[in-house]
Simulated scan of single mutants.
Amino acid sequence: MTSAPRVLIGHGTENDFVVLPDPDGTVWPERRLDAALVRRLCDRRAGLGGDGVLRVVRSVHVPDAPAVLGEDLQACEWFMDHRNADGSTAEMCGNGIRLFLHVLVTEGLLDRGACEAGVLVGTRGGPRRVGATPDGAYWVDMGPARPFGKGEAHVGDRTFAGLAVSMGNPHLACLTEADLASLDLTRAPEFDPELFPDGVNVELINVLEAGRHIRLRVSERGVGETRSCGTGACAAAYAALVDDGRTEGTVVVDVPGGRLSVRVAPGTTVLAGPAVLVSAGVLCAEWLGPQR
């Protein structure tokens, strides 16, 4: 690289990311931002540390954007190129996309006031409308929650029944009365690979007030346990509403990293919560090495 590339660190309810500003797709083209580099960036001891990487890039510079966005390609100027900590690509992240919009605003690429009505952002889960709130937080239309069966998660010697829900990525939302703090999520839960051939995010959920307030822990595929998961919060809220005999309503979701709000309505799920930038800097040539 001819100059030191800029990096940002931020989080949404402590679901944290390494953010790579790359508007024109010249700093981190696909051949450079490979799985090995993503793993190095997310390494919490030898790298910057994070649950994933977000590349802030215009959709026209992302090779697979036309396939995932289709006729919405022209409407989505910006694309959230999201990678899991293990280097794999990810379809969608509710915490990440709020942070993504926050970066667009703070970098001067979008006007915050103009974002209050929402702007379309491309993701590998399809286009998503994201907006700013007057109190400094952000919301995102996550699209509909789509149930697609029932399954089980195995955590140690315990089995938890759950509802399979797609939020653009697969989830298994398991309501339980178990003490969440007592569960060992240092190893990923086991699940039915036939129901989830591409892996699954597993939510373990306590209902605090039926259909209105829940708390959860989540194990994300390709990452492990995280402090928060936006799509997981949506899947968990939907499962809590279904358990209460409803498919619409607003649910407060407490995660280890903070609090989110999820509104489930016909054809849509809206997630709201904070986004915070922690630091900004550059990657040193010593760490990047000559191959970069």
Score class of each variant (00 low, 15 high):
199 G>A: 12
195 L>F: 07
222 G>C: 13
208 L>C: 13
205 I>W: 06
247 T>N: 09
174 C>V: 10
190 E>L: 15
222 G>S: 05
162 G>I: 14
157 D>E: 11
209 E>G: 05
173 A>H: 03
199 G>M: 09
253 V>C: 04
226 T>S: 02
264 V>F: 07
247 T>R: 12
184 D>I: 10
174 C>M: 02
257 G>I: 05
177 E>W: 11
263 R>N: 01
200 V>T: 15
171 H>W: 08
221 R>N: 09
264 V>I: 15
214 I>K: 04
195 L>K: 10
219 S>Y: 13
229 C>P: 03
229 C>V: 08
198 D>I: 08
250 T>E: 10
229 C>H: 04
161 A>D: 03
218 V>H: 00
237 A>L: 00
233 A>E: 01
179 D>G: 03
205 I>S: 06
211 G>A: 13
204 L>F: 13
242 V>W: 06
190 E>V: 06
176 T>C: 10
239 A>W: 03
191 F>E: 15
200 V>N: 07
239 A>Y: 01
232 G>D: 10
262 V>S: 00
264 V>S: 12
261 S>Q: 01
211 G>Y: 11
181 A>Q: 14
240 A>L: 02
171 H>T: 08
188 A>Y: 11
206 N>G: 08
196 F>P: 06
162 G>H: 12
154 H>K: 11
221 R>S: 11
228 S>G: 03
222 G>T: 14
240 A>P: 05
165 V>M: 01
241 L>S: 03
170 P>L: 08
176 T>L: 10
211 G>R: 15
174 C>H: 02
204 L>N: 04
252 V>F: 04
260 L>G: 03
206 N>D: 13
202 V>T: 07
215 R>G: 04
201 N>W: 02
188 A>F: 08
238 Y>E: 09
217 R>E: 00
164 A>I: 13
252 V>Y: 04
226 T>K: 00
184 D>S: 14
227 R>D: 13
187 R>K: 11
190 E>R: 15
182 S>P: 07
184 D>K: 15
260 L>S: 06
214 I>F: 12
168 G>Y: 01
203 E>F: 05
164 A>K: 04
253 V>M: 09
213 H>L: 07
